[in-house]
Amino acid sequence: MQYHTPDSFEDAVAIANAATGTTRFLAGGTDVLVQLRADIVTPDDLIDIKHIAGTHDITHNADGSWTIGVAVTGAEMSEHPTLKNDWPGLVEAMDLVGSTQIQGRATLVGNLCNGSPAADSVPAMIAINASIDITNATDTGTATRQVAAADIHTGPGKTSLTKGDVISAVNIPAVQPNSGDAYLRFIPRTEMDIAVVGVAVNLTLEGDTITAAKVVLGAVAPSYVTVTDAANALIGSTLDEAALDALATAASAACNPIDDKRGTIEFRTQVSGVLAKRAAVIAYARAKGANT
């Protein structure tokens, strides 16, 4: 295994494109190292991107949007003084990934690129329309393209990234007035488990009425599911019982899960609806300005 520490994305791209075997990128390493230690994946080239300038920064841009460096850890996101005021659901979702120790290393991009359909931060990113900067070589050098977070994961262990693609930033949009996001997951214990069901909800209100909504499910299908019916169940409502029930029904209906060691089809389907309701209640309260 060759260990590389490029100090620019251009160099990282060059190394990745020159590599002929298995290539992995190292930021937090909380998945890569597990696979390495267990002899599941031993990369031929391991590219540590943490030496690249800016990868550790959380930047609040002039237009209100955020740029999160690819090596920013969950702990750094939680500790940021204002990020969680804008996007509490995203910060909480990332904070749910693993233990305190894992939080000290794990990153949004790692959570996304690991390819699991059960990552906690991914539904939260999709729900708030986050996008990903991807840098790769072109005929004239390198270029960076922007791809919706929703378009990265394509199936268990699979992403849409191709050879030489290096993720160079995460873009989080500016928060709209009277909006709120929330993420809830189900695990059998209180900590340290992979989500059996994950639900992210992002709402915008006018007065008491929901005018925009996005509901995203994790761990209940081969990939993340943006549930349009669930959003439609909420839009136009004041989150009354009927809307919540319709939301739950739509969320459960959107599930296409498997039976595995972490949960059953029946369980995942049922609990998706339960968590969708609970997440919507939190997001709604946040949109109303509650500090929850």
């Binding site: 059998p188 214990r189 209180t190 900590e191 340290m192 488990d193 992979i194 060691k261 972490r262």
Partner: peptide, 10 residues
């Protein structure tokens, strides 16, 4: 991760 013994918060 999957053999779930009680953690402190449980």
């Amino acid at each position: 991760l999957d053999y779930r013994i009680p953690v402190a918060s449980d």
